[in-house]
Computed example of a mutant assay.
Amino acid sequence: MTALDTAAAYLGFRSHAVLAETATDLLPKFALSTKVGFFPGAGGTEHSLDPVRLRLAIEKAARELGREPDTVLLHNPERSLAGMSPADGQALLGSACTALVDAARGGLCRTWGVSSWDSRPLAMVGVEDLPSPDVLMVRAGFLVGIDLLDTTAVLLNAWQAGETWGMSPFGGGNGKVWAAFDPRPFLQPPHDCLSRAQAAFRTAFHLPSAAAVAVGTDNPGHLAELVQALGAEVDTTAVSQYLRALHGHRQS
């Protein structure tokens, strides 16, 4: 493992401090990404795209981690865009992106990006005129619907993001799905003998096409199993047929 992804809001807003305490002198050896956008509020947690709050959150992240993160991602900006007009949403998202651009230029991080659980609101605000992120992180894998996959493709083309990262390839660990569905036919031989979890993870790099896919680290055995799957080759023809089938089912 060479990369770690976290967020300011994880572990009850303690993730940065816990990670720094746990990893200590090993932390600089990892490429480190984090996310900002959620803040402690009177009712628990609130979301904000206010550029001043985002800048302060990035500065706080660096202090708590004991180092500047390599990448800072805007955490689920769609939460603040809901119900806004496209023009107002574009202005709000633009100011938030500019705050992250300025943080990168100021040395608070090396690159910046956006992490979105539901990219559809982002595609509606017209991102063509906004700063292009270095990274766009989206849900990936078989449990992502074709509407969201198509919207992500449109967003990537319009925004010209540098890299795509995937997340949540198992849909929150829904074991019933993987007991009923076998994704191993999407791997090329001899790798089709791997486990269903390994096949689902490896294929997630193609749904959508992603340079990296983030998974949880709470189960070391599960994590080791997934790392072993990285050498497997995906049958891209099967993936293309799968996507065509999803489009056909939607149209019917």
Rank of each mutant, 00 (worst) to 15 (best):
A161F: 01
P86W: 03
L187H: 01
V127C: 08
K35S: 01
F13C: 13
G83V: 01
P133Y: 04
F205P: 02
T22Q: 15
G171L: 09
S168V: 10
M137C: 13
S132G: 02
V177N: 04
A158P: 01
A232C: 11
L4H: 04
S85V: 11
A179E: 14
P190S: 02
A99Y: 08
W165D: 07
H206T: 00
Q228C: 04
T45W: 03
E68K: 14
E64T: 02
V36M: 07
L93H: 11
R53I: 12
H249E: 12
L92P: 00
G162M: 10
S252Y: 03
G126W: 07
P189S: 05
F30N: 10
G89A: 06
E225K: 03
Y242S: 08
N219V: 05
P77D: 05
Q241G: 10
G248Y: 00
L246Y: 04
G43K: 02
A96C: 08
L65H: 13
E68D: 06
V52W: 12
G216I: 06
G12I: 09
P183I: 11
P51D: 13
L56M: 05
S252M: 09
S33V: 01
T217R: 08
E163T: 02
D182N: 14
P131K: 00
T98A: 05
E128A: 15
T237Q: 07
A232H: 06
C193F: 02
